[in-house]
């Protein structure tokens, strides 16, 4: 059962992950056979529209998929252990310790009735037998690290006394308390102003580089990924439809969906050209059509797409789940 070979360099190795939600209306395959690797100190951008399964993937890794959802298949290799098979207590001891998570809405992630120091100290003490003063010292250092001025004073404050950007810094500081090997960040800058977003991105990038922490950055915003990530995986309807090094995928996307996604970003278009868009909507995961899930919205679709495409390795390090990839466009 040892996954040597990549275990040496890879922080995380997700294999054929399947997370399904057993609702009254039927089984929703929110994540349906997702595989990827995150190397030590690298940043993976997990990109997709809402409902593509990117957030559920993140929650599956940290073991916080709530009922009626469940990880039903695949493996999540982290430090020689399969997270999908750990007991709740083993998983708890990893959470917030070796794997940390940052949530989307900073206004909602901190408990409104507990002081910031309480919420930080409890995190330290959940994983290490240290006294309160030591834990407080650690909390203070972490706040300083994410650029919060006068951390001593801020520790005594309640969350609502912070701005959104500051709260997200606090959440990041909490994630950093135990210098985790992996941070899963679920759209952590989406709810913030663009300038704050930039500051936080720069901060995170610096931290990841200095501490060797790997990052999974879940987002729908390609421009964030472009500046931050090393690798990218594009998800659609519960599956990865394209992955590869970030520059390669963004400059020469193979999958029509990735092409459409990039085309939808205004700055990527030439001035005066109409914005391109992807027609239609994400299909309901309850009744996915047979074959390629993107078929109904794809201009290249034909009978071949009635079959389910595999993830073909089409270029060096770049793969796409498509029978008609955009191979003709040569990377610049």
């Amino acid at each position: 059962m040892f996954q040597q070979g990549f275990a040496v360099t890879a922080t995380l190795e997700v294999r054929d992950l399947q997370t399904h939600f057993f609702t009254r209306a039927g089984v929703v395959k929110a994540v349906d056979g997702v595989s990827f690797t995150v190397e030590r100190g690298k940043v993976l951008g997990l990109v997709g529209e809402s409902g593509s399964g990117k957030s559920v993937t993140g929650f599956s890794i940290i073991g916080l998929v709530d009922a009626p959802g469940r990880v039903v298949g695949g493996s999540i290799w982290f430090q020689g252990k399969d997270l999908a098979r750990l007991s709740e207590e083993e998983m708890r001891s990893l959470r917030g310790n070796r794997i940390a998570m940052i949530f989307q809405d900073p206004m909602m992630t901190l408990n409104p009735v507990l002081r910031v120091d309480t919420q930080m100290i409890e995190t330290v003490q959940a994983h290490e037998q240290v006294d309160r003063e030591t834990a407080r010292q650690r909390a203070r250092d972490a706040l300083g690290m994410v650029g919060i001025p006068s951390p001593d004073e801020r520790l005594m404050s309640y969350p609502h006394q912070f701005s959104g950007g500051m709260r997200q810094r606090v959440a990041i500081a909490i994630a950093l308390l135990h210098r985790p090997d992996l941070i899963v960040a679920d759209e952590p800058t989406t709810a913030l102003d663009v300038t704050i977003q930039g500051q936080i991105l720069a901060e995170v990038q610096k931290l990841a580089a200095t501490t060797g922490t790997s990052l999974i950055w879940i987002t729908h915003d390609l421009s964030v990924v472009a500046g931050l990530a090393d690798d990218i995986a594009v998800m659609y309807a519960g599956r990865i439809v394209e992955d590869g090094p970030v520059s390669q995928v963004l400059d020469a996307p193979l999958h029509p969906y990735t092409v459409g996604l990039i085309g939808s970003v205004p700055s990527r278009n030439k001035r005066g050209e109409p914005l391109r868009q992807i027609p239609g909507m994400t299909p309901s995961l309850l009744k996915l059509p047979a074959g390629c899930a993107f078929r109904s919205r794809c201009e290249r679709a034909d009978e071949a797409c009635l079959e389910h495409p595999a993830l073909f390795g089409l270029r060096e390090g770049q793969r796409a789940r498509c029978f008609h990839p955009h191979l003709e466009e040569v990377p610049a």
């Binding site: 708890r92 959470r95 917030g96 310790n97 901190l110 009735v113 409890e122």
Partner: peptide
């Protein structure tokens, strides 16, 4: 169902700590 409860769990707090401090106080 609140995010801060999920975040508290993501911090690796024990179930009891989440229930009796984070949920209960609210």
């Amino acid at each position: 169902l609140m995010d801060y409860v999920k975040f508290a769990r993501a911090k690796g707090l024990s179930r009891n700590r989440v229930t009796y401090v984070h949920v209960f106080k609210n």
